[in-house]
Amino acid sequence: MALDLYAGIPVTEYAAALKWYEQLLGSPPTFVASDTEAVWELAEHRAVFIEQRPEHAGHAMHTIFVDDFEALVAQIAERGLEPVERETYSNGVRKATYRDPDGNEIGFGGAPV
């Protein structure tokens, strides 16, 4: 069974969120769906999007697993964002958590070293 993922992140102010997510993800959106929605395709059939929906903003929680965890966290730091939390779980999996201006939680995870 083929699966697609289209994960939404509600935000209060589209323009501010767009700038922050471009900084976090390192690129402009893959496409702009409307005046209040932008989409980043992270991999084939896997995308995250922001949408101005102030009544729901601040409640998203997404974790994205990557091959080179340390390199990604370093690249994000070079763009001026630092994780609000870094964790290593008992099985060695690592996670860096970022929070956007609304408090939405975007985490990146990586396999044990």
Rank of each mutant, 00 (worst) to 15 (best):
L72T: 00
G103I: 04
G92H: 07
G80K: 08
A96N: 09
I106A: 03
T88H: 15
L81G: 09
Q75V: 04
G92Y: 08
V73R: 05
R99G: 12
G103F: 02
E105V: 01
L81D: 10
D100A: 03
P101W: 09
G103W: 03
P101N: 15
P101Y: 06
E82G: 06
Y89P: 11
S90N: 15
E78D: 12
G92S: 15
L72S: 01
L81Q: 08
D68R: 01
Q75D: 14
E78K: 08
G80A: 07
N104K: 02
E70Y: 01
D100Y: 03
Q75E: 09
I106V: 05
Y89E: 15
E87Y: 11
E87C: 13
G92M: 08
G103V: 05
R99N: 11
V73S: 08
D68S: 01
E87S: 11
N104P: 04
E78Q: 13
D100H: 06
L72K: 00
R86H: 14
P83M: 11
E78V: 07
A71M: 06
A96W: 03
D67A: 01
N91I: 11
N91L: 14
R86N: 12
T97L: 12
R94M: 13
Y98M: 14
E82S: 10
S90A: 14
R86K: 14
K95T: 12
E85A: 10
V73P: 05
Y89M: 12
F69T: 02
D102W: 00
Q75F: 05
T88W: 14
L81F: 10
D102P: 00
R99L: 12
V93P: 04
I76A: 05
I76V: 05
F69G: 03
Y98C: 12
F69V: 03
V93L: 06
E82K: 06
Y89D: 13
N91P: 14
Y98G: 08
A77Q: 15
P101K: 07
N104L: 02
V93S: 07
D67G: 00
I76Y: 04
F69L: 04
T88E: 15
E105R: 00
E105K: 01
I106P: 01
G80R: 06
I106Q: 02
K95M: 12
E82Q: 09
T97R: 06
L72N: 00
E87M: 10
E70W: 00
T97I: 14
N104G: 03
V93R: 02
N91R: 09
A71I: 05
